[in-house]
Design a protein around this nucleic acid. Structure first.
Length: 277
DNA sequence: CGCCAGGCTTCTA
DNA sequence: TAGAAGCATGGC
């Protein structure tokens, strides 16, 4: 496994000899919006109502002020550390284009974020750029998220469901305000169940999420992949559409299907930063 | 200043 | 039922 030897040390939790985990590539490849780089080796972010500092220290990765219990309960799955990315990449390398993408950023991991946060974040992302999306999310959290040490938690659907567009004005999210409210109300009232979407067959899960106004195929797929652990799901945005048209007109290789969403992440990052298209 | 942004809804033929 | 326009806002 990638980080088999984790151990508590002086209040921190250390992943010894941690392979396949490039903080920069993982936290800045367009899948998450609440992480910021502190210095060349460290990042700070907020997830699950907790502010966390992560540091690369040689072969190790250090989670600052994290107990073993907290690591196992929360961060292990969040960073997808139970998956063997070494073996996964070995599989993907069978295709020459995937091989290039994997070798471009071999330390990418796909995070398993909170389902609601992923859905809301990608509702915000539509017809938007990543920089501004981060700003909108900061303002949403400052205005409506619970205050926690080091910042604000992401506001849950119940908190947002009672608001109206006027209340969201300070977030400056434009036409997306109505979409966010419909999503919050749908989830808060049980019209849409993220828990069910996590388990449904993929096409049914997409259709279930797309009942929400402002959630189309792309946002539904991002919710499934980044928020609900559906690594077989492939969001196709403008970049991936170019990649597919140019390199995979017949679709991604069959052998990649069970982890096609992760393959997508390597391709997306490569295409967007190196211009593979 | 003009173009564009990890799209989606609505309008039109 | 496909294709284009409209959408709020700000980054560059």
């Amino acid at each position: 496994m990638d980080c088999a030897r984790g151990e508590p040390s002086g209040g921190d939790y250390i992943l010894r000899d941690c392979r396949n985990f490039d903080l920069q590539a993982t936290l800045d490849c367009g899948q998450c919006f609440r992480w910021e780089q502190i210095d060349s080796q460290a990042w700070r972010g907020i997830a699950f109502g907790r502010s966390l500092t992560l540091e690369r220290r040689g072969d190790d990765v250090v989670l600052h002020k994290v107990s073993e219990a907290e690591f196992l309960a929360r961060w292990r799955d969040y960073f997808d550390l139970g998956r063997d990315y070494g073996a996964l990449k070995e599989l993907l390398r069978r295709d020459p284009v995937l091989r290039r993408a994997v070798e471009f950023a071999p330390g990418i991991r796909v995070l398993r974020q909170n389902g609601w946060e992923a859905m809301a974040s990608f509702i915000f992302s539509q017809n938007n750029n990543i920089k501004r999306n981060k700003g909108m999310i900061v303002r949403l959290c400052q205005a409506f998220g619970e205050e926690i040490p080091g910042g604000h938690a992401f506001p849950g659907p119940k908190r947002l469901a009672g608001l109206d567009k006027a209340a969201l004005e300070p977030v400056r999210c434009g036409f997306r305000a109505g979409y966010l409210l419909d999503a919050a109300q749908a989830v808060a009232r049980g019209r849409v169940s993220l828990e069910r979407a996590a388990l449904l067959p993929l096409e049914e899960a997409r259709a279930h999420l797309m009942q929400i106004k402002g959630v189309g195929p792309k946002v539904a797929d991002c919710t499934l992949l980044y928020g609900l652990g559906r690594v077989e799901c492939v969001p196709v945005d403008v970049w991936m559409a170019r990649v597919m048209a140019r390199w995979f007109p017949g679709g991604l290789p069959e052998f990649a299907a069970p982890v096609a969403g992760i393959a997508q992440q390597y391709l997306f990052h490569f295409a967007r930063t190196e211009g593979l298209a």
